[in-house]
Write a protein that binds this DNA or RNA. Structure first.
Lengths: 334, 334
DNA sequence: CTGAAAGCGCTTACAG
DNA sequence: CTGAAAGCGCTTACAG
């Protein structure tokens, strides 16, 4: 690999001139610039990342901390990965992906060794040990997912409460008065998955405001429990005319299950849910749903993080951005 | 962040002693070792990665080049991600994930700037421009997926030909004499996805050896074309008693589609396929299938790559490792 | 508009 | 068993 010294020698200038030609931080005569550029091309010179980061204390790398909760629906995670790497790349950053079970330890290691300029925490729950680790490192970071205590943190998440109200209103406006809600599994609530109760509580409250009967039930995350659970819920609520699915694994199983039961959508039952376009495509889901917007969330998070890296506290106060929930009508209600 | 100089001062030794205490590359008196360790703990010292890599020309990072083919089934990619990061971590490496459309450019950038010690190319096809880029960089690399020209490359892939023969034999042994094969979409063949024709050609040949009628058809990768395509194939082959699904997107749609057609498995039709346990779980697929073993492939690839990094040509000749295909009986045949 | 020099934080041959 | 010093490849104040 060529070094900046090689380029300087070939171009017949000093190393500082090559560096400034690269960075544009001081003016260079056209003739010199040409010679430098020629030499760079001839030698295929690329600045050494380690040397640069040692000198500037900046790496151009962001750490992405992915948490695989044992019982969670893995494909849902994938939706965030591509938008995040793309948004980061567009801003000049690469992504170091860390999937260790001990996310707090991984975060600390990446930060303390200076491998990254900032950290993205995916799928944050209340009481997440990575959040304390992040606070301890003093590194810029952004959370996707809302913990209980957000002091001093930049957080991005979907507005699950607004999403729930939106869906309840949608069914109510169509005349539905008896509706079922299938939530994430109970252990997601217990574990601190705040999106689960933010959604459910908002749905319950809106239903009560409207005088709509809402039966909220936990879903399951693994077959065959999913099918059994859904059959049980549907048997239990024969008069319900609408169902709100807030559960990736369950909604993925729903088309087949409703077909088996001979339930037609939307003639016999109106179905609404919350997932992304990609998710709908992978699982051929035909339901009207709140778009969970992983691409937008990822982009907002990366933008926020890079702002924080560049400007620190001057990038504005720390805070939580709840991204508005938008409904996509696929004709599964009436 | 504390530096090695801080540790040395607190411990009352030289920086070299701290460094050697860390690396264990020369003997240290117990007393000195204790003082150094105390200082490291007191200061929470972690060596700076940039400085270390500048000095040693090693980064402890592997580049993972993920290629998102527009028409491909994204969840399938995810299965490789976790095993690869875990295998890498177990060997002391972190993973830089690159998802750019221009994978060759990304690969070159990572290699030339010295960000990584080696490269993993996921989902390699024949004529993949990343392969030429890899050869040009002279960096250690490993491919998952088999290109046409493997000279000088370390390659890991599933033995798709053996998998196909295995499935044909399985159906033949149960008495089936008229079988359908649903391959990947035509453009996967055209694009250079060698797994598609390695599987199909081996199936066709084995069928002809056995005197079994095998109707090979292209599948689709997007709804609603998937359903239409499958209905067409099933209508076309009313006498087929078995079906071999070599197509992620199509097999994911099959349970619902067969249910719609009133086809019972295995009473009316025997079904075999090729996918991973995780994939089967996500999509609730009940079919006997060759285990595609993404975890094993990822682990083999990482092991091979780190060997190559550590020992270069002494790690043995470059070559292709085809991982044996194992069948998991889920009772969908008879 | 350009160059010589210092220094980022490590590791390791050299010396004792 | 330990230390002083060189040097990895950059960037940037300092000087002209």
């Amino acid at each position: 690999m060529a070094t900046i010294g090689d380029v300087a020698r070939v171009a017949g200038v000093s190393r500082s001139t090559v560096s400034y030609a690269l960075s544009g931080k001081r003016s260079i005569s056209p003739e010199t610039r040409r010679r430098v550029n020629d030499a760079i091309r001839a030698l295929k010179f690329t600045p050494n990342a380690g040397a640069r980061s040692l000198r500037t204390a900046q790496t151009g790398v962001l750490g992405l901390l992915v948490q695989f909760h044992e019982d969670e629906f893995a494909p849902a995670m994938l939706q965030y990965l591509l938008p995040i790497t793309e948004a980061a790349r567009a801003l000049g950053y690469d992504i170091l992906i860390m999937t260790e079970n001990d996310g707090a330890e991984a975060l600390t290691r990446a930060a303390e060794s200076g491998m990254v300029d900032g950290l993205v925490l995916l799928d944050v729950i209340d009481g997440d040990p990575r959040v304390d680790a992040l606070r301890a490192t003093q590194q810029p970071g952004v959370l996707i997912g809302l913990p209980g205590d957000t002091r001093g943190l930049d957080v991005v998440d979907l507005d699950f409460a607004a999403a729930a109200r939106n869906l309840v209103d949608h069914l109510y406006d169509l005349g539905h008065r008896d509706v079922v809600l299938v939530s994430p599994p109970r252990h997601v609530f217990d574990r601190g998955g705040t999106y689960s109760w933010r959604f459910r509580d908002a749905a319950v409250q809106r239903a009560s405001e409207l005088g709509l009967t809402l039966t909220a039930r936990y879903g399951e995350s693994q077959q065959p429990a999913i099918d059994e659970n859904l059959h049980g819920i549907l048997d239990e609520c024969p008069d319900a005319t609408g169902i709100i699915m807030h559960n990736d694994a369950s909604v993925a199983a729903l088309p087949r299950l409703l077909h088996e039961r001979g339930v037609r959508v939307p003639d016999d039952l109106s179905v609404v849910s919350l997932y992304s376009r990609d998710f709908a495509r992978w699982f051929s889901l035909p339901y009207t749903a709140i778009e969970s917007s992983p691409g937008l969330l990822g982009k907002v998070a990366i933008t926020q993080l890079t702002e924080r890296i560049a400007h620190g506290d001057e990038a504005g106060p720390h805070g939580t951005r709840l991204v508005a929930a938008e409904i996509i009508d696929r004709g599964s209600t009436r």
